[in-house]
Design a protein around this nucleic acid. Structure first.
Lengths: 226, 226
DNA sequence: CTTGTCGAATCGTTCAACGATCCTTACGTT
DNA sequence: AACGTAAGGATCGTTGAACGATTCGACAAG
């Protein structure tokens, strides 16, 4: 019986798990990530707190959370806006990816992490066959999130989660998701092979080329806008 | 004249710079980092909002910000507490440092970054001569913050800033700051030399040993507490 | 010693209000 | 036509009070 009681300790995290402000933040985060709120759009306190049935103060707490995640841009006395990323932001995001993912592929891979990466990989391929490019994008994100878990660091996982959320804001400027995601299917597969083969050096080099290419594609999509 | 106008863009960040909640967060962050609020201590909404002369709602917004930085622990219906880091947290912080600083030392150093590192180095040495070990700790943190700037990434700089703030919470358990900081003076100097000499491989290896040692010192200090 | 009950303290959330700030528009000046 | 000024409205920033919900500690009953 002591075992059963001890097991409860793991579920403790679920106890504290709720608070209107956090739930509101979750809802808004989803909308932003899904692209239902477009970058640059202003989020009016009044209309949103009425639509969600929460008070302005609670909504403001949620806004603070999302601004801190760089998904919203909070301008004093002017309200909050969905973040608009600049070309410099894109470059910076890829600099961080090179560091985080680069460190990941140099680590001895754990079976669980490999399984997660592999699962995301097959999900992406299945979605590609079905022609669901939005799902391909989602699976691709899961792939890279799983990649970072090789670092075995909760904080780096969290950092990657936030980074990928920001990156989704960028993906919305890609008018044709297929052209953007399709080429990376083979690359993800190849990278996974190199990791499984225990060749960290080659995997890291391959990853660098991979990220350079993706960054340039995105930057090119940003060119016309200025 | 266009130059002068363009130069203004850099000061734009100062414009938005104010909001009671953020200023409150700044004040509290300083107190926490300086150790005036001890880890585990509860921060009562009522007493603090009265002491600072702000409303509870505003204070709560500040609390949200600091919880998001992992400096406060927000437990539902129980209030906010100064974060208490576990031994696992310490290990994770050092895993992140290995990734962030490890990537930094492998980069070709820029003159400005080197200057900043060098300045922190001499500040630390000067403070050591004066026997001011608290100042040594502060300069040491500046040193590593400057180290990360080699990555040339604002997001990584920010991540390092937060990481070091967390680490200060841990340093408060070191009863004797001199024993902890003194050995690292020579190591910092040696690491700087290796970077200046353009030997990224040896610098990275040296850094790893450095971080391993620091982590173990901290973990040993944590042992008695459990 | 364990369990149930109760009250105080505090949190979570809402609501209403007022001043401050920003944007827009209009008007007059140069 | 370009610029400075003024007025108005919309929205934000912040406050203060209020009430239910939750937690914690004490104390009595089993």
């Amino acid at each position: 019986m002591d075992d059963a009681v001890a097991g409860l300790a793991q579920d403790r995290s679920r106890l504290g798990r709720s608070s209107t402000a956090e739930r509101v933040a979750d809802i808004l985060r989803d909308r932003i990530i899904e692209g239902l709120f477009m970058p640059g759009q202003r989020l009016s306190e009044e209309s949103i707190c009425e639509a969600l049935g929460v008070s302005r103060n609670t909504l403001r707490e949620a806004f603070r959370l999302l601004s801190h995640e760089r998904l919203l841009d909070h301008r004093l006395n002017r309200g909050v806006f969905v973040r608009v990323l600049s070309a410099e932001d894109v470059s910076d995001l890829y600099r961080v990816r090179r560091v985080l993912e680069g460190a990941a592929v140099r680590r001895p891979p754990t079976p669980q992490a490999l399984a997660q990466i592999s699962e995301a990989m097959t999900d992406a391929e299945r979605a590609a066959e079905a022609g669901d490019w939005r799902a391909v994008g989602t699976a691709n994100i899961r792939y890279h999130q799983a990649l970072v878990t090789l670092n075995q660091s909760p904080r780096l996982d969290e950092a990657m989660r936030q980074l990928l959320a920001e990156l989704r804001l960028v993906f919305h400027v890609m008018e044709n998701p297929r052209d953007f995601h399709e080429p990376f299917l083979d690359r993800n597969r190849e990278l996974l092979k190199l990791i499984e083969a225990g060749e960290p050096g080659r995997a890291a080099a391959y990853l660098d080329g991979y990220l350079d290419h993706a960054e340039q594609l995105l930057l090119r999509a940003y060119e016309p806008n200025r």
